[in-house]
C-alpha cells in the first residue's frame, strides 16, 4: 500500500530551483534511503514533506500522504499530521531537544500532544519508550537533562519522541552523522529494529551510501534537485545506470575497501557540486560526467528500464563502470 506519493515536487526560492520536479513513492512499512551530497536538495525535500520548508520557499506539485494532499495545507493543519502520523529525526539531537526540560518530560509531552491520555498513562508510555530505545534504567534516566546525556543517548531520546504516537512514517535526516562510528551502528540498528516492530515506514536521508544501503530496501539518488536514479538497494549497488550513482558508489567503496598502498588513489568525482543556481541547463550532472554528449543539453526524463534513471547514455547493466575515463562513442 502506498503511504507517501510525491509527484512533480518543485521547490523554488528567489526564482532558483531547489527541487526540479521529484517523483517517488514510499510504501507502508518500507525503508527507503534518499542519498545526496550537500547541495543536492535532500534536506529541503525532507523539510518540504514535513511542511517545514523555510520562509520564502515556494512549493508546487503534489505530496499525498495516507491519501491526503499535503501541499497547500495551513500550518495548523500540517501540525496535526506532524508528530502524529509523520515524525522527524534530525542530525543534531541537541537542537531538537529542549535543553531546560528533563528528557522524560519531553517524551511525555510528545505522547500527550496528539493523544488524550491521562498523566499516568502518558508516563508509563514514556517509560516504555525509554526502555525500548535502550535506556536500561528509564525511571532514573528520565530525570536527566539533555546535556547530561551522550550524543547517542540524546539521539535515542529523539527517536523515542518520534515513536511516541506510532507514526506511519519516520523521516530521519542524517540521524547518525554527528555520532561516533560505534554509536552510529547502535543507533542505526535501533532505528531499523523499531520501524520493523512498529510497522512504520522509514525515509532515511544521508550522504553516505554505505549507511543507506545497510539499512534500506530501496534507494533514491538525488543530485541538483533532481532524482537521477531510483531502484532496489541491490539494483543500485550492483547495476547502477546513472553515471553519478556509479561515481558515488566507487567513491564510497574506495574509502572502505583497501589500504591506499594496495588501491592507489581513491576514486573521486571530478569537480564539485555547484551552488544553488549554478547547475547547468539540461542534465544537472553535465560538466562532471564522463559520458556527456551534445544531447545532454536537454534534460533527460526519469525512465524505467528495470529500475528508474534519468540519463541519455546510461551505463549498461553488468558492464564495468569506466569512471573518470571517457567512454567510446
Amino acid at each position: 500500500m502506498t503511504l507517501l506519493r510525491v509527484r512533480g515536487l518543485r521547490v523554488e526560492t528567489a526564482g532558483l530551483p531547489v527541487l526540479r520536479g521529484v517523483d517517488f513513492e514510499v510504501a507502508a512499512g518500507e525503508r527507503v534511503g534518499l542519498i545526496g551530497e550537500s547541495g543536492s536538495g535532500k534536506t529541503v525535500a525532507a523539510l518540504t514533506l514535513m511542511g517545514l520548508q523555510p520562509e520564502g520557499f515556494a512549493v508546487r506539485g503534489s505530496v499525498e500522504f495516507e491519501g491526503r494532499q499535503l501541499v497547500g495545507l495551513s500550518d495548523r493543519e500540517f501540525s496535526a499530521i506532524r508528530g502524529a502520523r509523520m515524525a522527524m529525526v534530525f542530525q543534531e539531537p541537541m537542537t531538537a531537544l529542549d535543553p531546560l526540560m528533563r528528557v522524560g518530560q519531553q517524551i511525555t509531552d510528545a505522547v500527550r500532544a496528539h493523544r488524550r491520555v491521562s498523566r499516568s498513562e502518558a508516563r508509563s508510555r514514556m517509560l516504555e519508550l525509554m526502555s525500548r530505545v535502550g535506556f536500561p534504567l528509564p525511571e532514573e534516566q528520565a530525570r536527566r537533562f539533555p546535556h547530561q546525556l551522550s550524543g547517542g543517548q540524546r539521539q535515542r531520546v529523539v527517536i523515542a519522541i518520534a515513536l511516541a504516537c506510532d507514526p506511519a512514517l519516520i523521516l530521519a535526516d542524517e540521524p547518525t552523522t554527528a555520532l561516533d562510528v560505534t554509536v552510529q551502528a547502535q543507533v542505526l540498528a535501533l532505528l531499523q529494529r523499531l520501524v520493523a516492530e512498529e510497522g512504520s515506514a522509514l525515509l532515511l536521508i544521508s550522504h553516505d551510501l554505505a549507511v543507506v544501503s545497510s539499512v534500506c530496501q530501496r534507494v533514491l539518488v538525488m543530485y541538483g534537485g533532481t532524482l537521477v536514479e531510483a531502484g532496489s538497494t541491490e539494483e543500485i549497488l550492483e547495476a547502477p545506470r546513472h553515471p553519478y550513482t556509479a561515481a558515488l558508489l566507487s567513491t564510497s567503496a574506495g574509502i572502505g575497501a583497501e589500504s591506499r598502498l594496495a588501491a592507489g588513489r581513491l576514486p573521486t568525482i571530478p569537480g564539485s557540486v555547484p551552488s544553488l543556481g549554478g547547475f547547468p541547463e539540461g542534465c544537472v550532472f553535465r560538466g562532471r560526467c564522463p559520458r556527456e554528449q551534445a544531447r545532454c543539453q536537454e534534460a533527460p526524463p526519469l525512465v524505467a528500464d528495470g529500475h528508474r534513471f534519468a540519463c541519455w547514455f546510461p551505463l549498461q547493466p553488468g558492464a564495468p563502470s569506466k569512471l573518470g575515463t571517457p567512454i567510446g562513442r
Binding site: V181, T182, Q184, A185, Q186, L188, A189, Q192, R193, D208, L209, A210, V211, S213, S214, V215, T233, E234, L237, L249, S252, A253, G256
Partner: peptide
C-alpha cells in the same frame, strides 16, 4: 562498526 556498501547493521 564501519558501515560498508550493502552491508548489514549489526547490533
Amino acid at each position: 562498526s564501519v558501515p560498508v556498501l550493502g552491508g548489514r547493521i549489526e547490533d
